[in-house]
Each structure stands twice: as structure tokens, then as C-alpha cells.
Amino acid sequence: MTEVRPRIRLPRSASAGDSIVVKTLINHDMESGQRRNSAGETIPRQIINRFTCEFGGVMVIDAALEPAISANPYLEFEAVVPASGEFVFTWYDDNGEVYTATEAFEVS
């Protein structure tokens, strides 16, 4: 697979205390472990099994993901932004790798 690249979308602006919509996407095959290759062998499972988002050190969402989540997992949720701070997004791969993205967010 090509390089893993997380994508994050936050609104352009928000006021302190607002709840904002956060969208995330990461390129990943989410290999379910149920498919077979052309030789008839089962392709081993390799998925993103967990995703977390924190803002200013406070947990927003913690998701346990199963193979039924589509390839290139997309997650959308809402976060409260009491003050300016940093978002930290983390994806956990079955293969032990952890992908992190951070995004500063300014409130007005």
C-alpha cells in the first residue's frame, strides 16, 4: 500500500464553547481477513482497529473499529472547543503502527 496520509477537515472558524463538526479520512485498505487472493489463500486481516481524537488533552471520541468499516475509513463527529488548542488524531493499525495527525484550532 502507498504511504498512509490522514486528512482532517475542521470549520474555518468557531467561537469559544462551540461544538464543531470534525471530519477525518485516512487511506487504508481495511483488509477484512475474509477475502482470498487469486491463489485462493486468505488475505490476512489488517485494519485500523482504533481511532481517537483529543482536543486540548480532553478525549472527544474513542472508536473501536471492525473489518466492517469501509476501506479508507471516514469518521465524522462533533467536538467542543472551549478555547484555542490542538487536536490530536490517532489511528491504530493491526500491524502495530500508529499514525498521528495534529491540527491547531483557534477560537474567536
Binding site: I20, V60, A63, A64, P73, L75, E76, A79
Partner: peptide, 18 residues
């Protein structure tokens, strides 16, 4: 499919995915 736990920073108890 998935289990979603909302922390104190969640703005709503909602999630969208594919």
C-alpha cells in the same frame, strides 16, 4: 461494525462513517 465512546470533549453523541 464499531463501538464509539464519547469523551468529555464530544460536542454531540453522534458519529458518521462508511
Amino acid at each position: 461494525v464499531g463501538k464509539f465512546t464519547f469523551g468529555p470533549g464530544a460536542g454531540a453523541s453522534m458519529v458518521a462513517t462508511r
